[in-house]
């Protein structure tokens, strides 16, 4: 087995978990966590692929992951603010209650 096969399997599992979380969960915080899992799947993929060449760790992939973590931190911060505002309006974190617009 190639050494990074296990990483790739983990990436696909994370992707599946993230998508499942996004489609089945109804709690807004959990949806945010689902997005975060998707981002982390991509980050893990970067790291896994940056060590695929034997005996050489590519700094490019690692650098990009560092920046990507900062970026998805920003994204999730905005998401949390929106969740907070939604909670103030609706008094619940259940997305099924956000039904004033036609989905």
């Amino acid at each position: 087995m190639h050494p990074f096969t296990s990483f790739i399997v983990a990436v696909f599992l994370l992707l599946l978990i993230g998508l499942l979380c996004l489609t089945t969960r109804r709690n807004m915080i959990r949806l945010l966590i689902g997005v975060e899992i998707l981002f982390n799947a991509a980050n893990l993929n970067f790291i896994a692929l940056s060590i695929q060449r034997a005996g050489f760790i590519d700094p490019l992939g690692q650098m990009i992951v560092l920046m990507a973590i900062v970026l998805d931190g920003c994204v999730v911060a905005v998401g949390l603010v929106m969740t907070l505002n939604a909670y103030r309006h609706y008094g619940t974190l259940d997305v099924r209650k956000l039904r004033r617009l036609r989905w």
Partner: peptide, 9 residues
Amino acid sequence: SAFLLLSMS
């Protein structure tokens, strides 16, 4: 965006 990052990787 997450899928975009995945495609980048």
